[in-house]
Design a protein around this nucleic acid. Sequence first.
DNA 1: AGTTGATAAATTGTCGACAATGTTTAATTT
DNA 2: AAATTAAACATTGTCGACAATTTATCAACT
Lengths: 224, 224
Amino acid sequence: MIKGDTSSMAELCFVSLRDAIVEGKVKQGSKLSETKIAEQYQVSRAVVRDAIAKLEVCRLVERKPNIGAKVISLNEASLNELYQVRSALEALAARLAANNMTKQQRQQLISLLDSQKSVVRSNNYYQEAGDVDFHYHIITGSNNQSLVDLLLGSIYYLVRMYRVQLGMTGPRVSNAYFEHQQIAMAIERQDGELAEMLMRRHIQYSMQTIIDKFAANSISQLQL
Amino acid sequence: MIKGDTSSMAELCFVSLRDAIVEGKVKQGSKLSETKIAEQYQVSRAVVRDAIAKLEVCRLVERKPNIGAKVISLNEASLNELYQVRSALEALAARLAANNMTKQQRQQLISLLDSQKSVVRSNNYYQEAGDVDFHYHIITGSNNQSLVDLLLGSIYYLVRMYRVQLGMTGPRVSNAYFEHQQIAMAIERQDGELAEMLMRRHIQYSMQTIIDKFAANSISQLQL
DNA sequence: AGTTGATAAATTGTCGACAATGTTTAATTT
DNA sequence: AAATTAAACATTGTCGACAATTTATCAACT
């Protein structure tokens, strides 16, 4: 954590903790000790409490009075629920992107897909977080701040947390690239209805993959 | 604020501040002074800061380092965006409610509508917050906790804030009751697709009403 | 009257301390 | 040995204080 930025220490602590949780450095279900985190980051507990309060509302931690906070536990039921919500919201994002994307945003999306073409050939197509993430561009391209806040404020991190937990940040089958292309073409043609439908399908397939992976992961842990 | 509860003071302060903001006691766009709020509620500033941190993530306040927090400003663009998101999420809630509602929840919904029948006759049909709110029952009846958290954690309060600002907590035309009935019947018959479609329509009409009201309100303020 | 600069006052961000609560460890009883 | 109770320890919730930053006020100048 770099001091001297225009952000408060509390904000930096929040981002740092959020990333540590999402990327699996702090395990799901584990207890967050304000005292230890304050020591580790060399800040006062007030800073840590501010960050934890916000993480609670982001639904990455659960907090109980006098007991403290712990990272949420991941389970198949909540994964299912999360994907239902994700599907509804990202389908909306795709429809709005088809209608609302600026020319510049459209060009960025196309450029992104072009730059990823060679990656697909070597069967290494996957989505890193942030600027090079296809979904991130669709969401921001919706130009609906309320939707951006919801998706990038909470859903995005929860989904990523599951993917990290399941080791799904690595290569994926290249169907995803094809689906992304189809969605991008619908958006380019400003066909909101098609973009929405394709995105629903895409998320549905993705959901099936991650649920299968979760189930397989649970079975292999039972066998240990 | 009652002390001695099992909730922390920070939680009570959060709820109290949220309600004050949503119900218009603290004006939109106004500055929140930690010092003054702490005085008013007779707690330390730490309690107030905890509450404000959470209100920030709920998107009811905007916070800037070294400047402080202020209540969001309401405007037509963000109202529009909010309703787009609300429509997607409540349509999903209706579909899930048709599939997931327990028998008991279904009975409660029907009872609620029955109890409101006489109110409609006197043209006084409106939705108070919480337990007697039709939408609240649909959302909880979705039995998707992720969806409940999103809608009841943020969207619900933002929508209510707009309605209070526009004086829309009073009587409404009784079309709403008819629409609610139609939705409830689709849910009772477990017809998720119809429930979803009817809910989209219902929110769309509601959106048109509130946008018209917002525009009329803005014009009348310009004429002052 | 409007602008600029300096000073005072207020507010925010963070700190360490204290009291209350919960957890862990040790001692006692069965 | 197992169960119960008491004591010690750790953590959380809240407090007031300090330093840094911003805002408000006032005086001087144009």
